[in-house]
Amino acid sequence: MTADPLLKVTNLTKVYTGRPSLVGRMLGRAPVNVRAVSDVSLSVNRGEILGLIGESGCGKSTLGRAILRLHEPTAGKVEFGGTDITALPAPDMKAMRRRMQIIFQDPYASLNPRRTVAEIVGLPLQLHGLAKTRSEMREKVALMLEKVGLKAGQLDRYPHQFSGGQRQRIGIARALISNPEFIVCDEPVSALDVSIQAQIIQLLQDLKREFALTYLFISHDISVIGYLSDRVAVMYLGEIVEMGPVESILARPRHPYTQSLMSAVPEVEASDKSQRVQLSGDLPSPLSPPSGCKFHTRCPLAIDICRQRQPETERVGTGHTAACHRLKENLSLLEGARA
């Protein structure tokens, strides 16, 4: 695939500042800073699916939202279709948003319970002036509902009259109706039952083909990511620790965190788990992240340098990068285990 980046993110950082409590302020306590996303660079090529994987609290949703400027980035640059959107004034940003949309995880919380489907899905048309009359709007919404597997006759129903899977279809229709090029899918199938999850994954794939879409697909489920994505980025405590083509990440994960993530997934088919890397302990608090490599507190390979210095991102294969001090030792360990 020739690289044709639709989205380019450079050194993106998002810091949330927590205001101290009243008592805290009287005592002169400093505000608490959480670096939810730290110095992330990535690009998404036109027509591809970049899978973003990580555990809860790693900053993957924040990254997705900072890219769309739903949460303003603290530092760094986001370029979309060649335009730097980080400094775009509000009216231009609004026009840009027609081209970049998001699908949310929770199909219950992300739809206004007091609006009908026609109103919810029609809102982007209204906002971007894409439908001149009410009847044109209803017509377009009806057409879109059929595209996502709902019925045109369901236009005037309310969200509570639909099941979880159907609601997610409504959310997808809302994201697609302004004819965008790029969609952030933020855990769109995590709240759904297995059989419904499969329906939605299939739908997202079909729609991508039909509308020539590009996805940033955020999930904690490596099976879903591995099935869907062209490239994968692995996130841990606000940083991307490994990124590369899906085949290469699945066959030869190089970062110990990626390795442990993959071996922790329970699989239906019996597989060789002799190289299982089981992690001890929990995710450290992002309020006080560990020094050096942030993974060192749980890493089975950690040595002194890991506690002191942050590892550089290194190239480990074609389009495959990883940030770890012990890449070489890890590789020889892996090969030793295989031999």
Partner: peptide, 9 residues
């Protein structure tokens, strides 16, 4: 999360 799930199971 999966890494914690593995520990509990």
């Amino acid at each position: 999360d999966v890494t914690i799930q593995a520990q509990v199971l």
